[in-house]
Design a protein around this nucleic acid. Sequence first.
DNA 1: AGCATATGGGCAGATATCTTCCTATAGAAG
DNA 2: CTTCTATAGGAAGATATCTGCCCATATGCT
Lengths: 117, 117
Amino acid sequence: MPRRREGRLVDLEVDILGAGIELQVEDGDFYGFALAKRIADRSGASALTAHGTLYKALGRLAERGLVESEWEDPEIAAAEGRPRRRLYRVTGAGAAACRAETELRTAPVPSPRSAFA
Amino acid sequence: MPRRREGRLVDLEVDILGAGIELQVEDGDFYGFALAKRIADRSGASALTAHGTLYKALGRLAERGLVESEWEDPEIAAAEGRPRRRLYRVTGAGAAACRAETELRTAPVPSPRSAFA
DNA sequence: AGCATATGGGCAGATATCTTCCTATAGAAG
DNA sequence: CTTCTATAGGAAGATATCTGCCCATATGCT
């Protein structure tokens, strides 16, 4: 992919913010693995078999302040007998960016050319 | 495999106790993953690709009291940024059983038939 | 219009442990 | 000596996160 256009989001990032918001209204926060499942469900197909892509995208969003994260208390993971999770929350800026991106896509400024189509 | 002969050890169990003893003189204890690597190194070949087998064998040895285990402090695993380990130690009984098994194998009682071979 | 390149995305694998399902066989029983 | 079966072992996958490598391409620039 090319240089990112300032302030825009790629498909996966939109999916993450969307699914993330869904999950966090249910549980208060969300984590990568659950997110992957949710996104896979939404997209119907079995997208995201490679989770590396997802975690990299989450990292990008974190750097931009669109999500924030903290490690789960290790004792909780231990008590539940599973690996530790990194808990994410979509920030206000993240929710806004998601809305903005969706608008830009659903109501795109038609290119001048289309007038002659 | 058949019913286990009372008090005997299968190959994998001998390997575990042997490699386990090696590792625990170095570090005081050992864990499944390190054990798998050590055993693979010893056997030259890439045995034990499926780790399930190893963990089951460790469970058997634990039930028989030949190894003892405890979970690593979750904070340590968290601090080192990796999954939590279950730490094992070969018990005195384990070391003895390993020696006994080895003897039974290296100096087998010859079957009566061999006198006529 | 066309080229260069930054960047996202997929694949693969490391780190750890455990479960479930299936298969093959060694030892017990007849 | 043959038949039965308990049990070990392998394959696969769930649970979580992260890193490195490589490739395709949309953008930005000329």
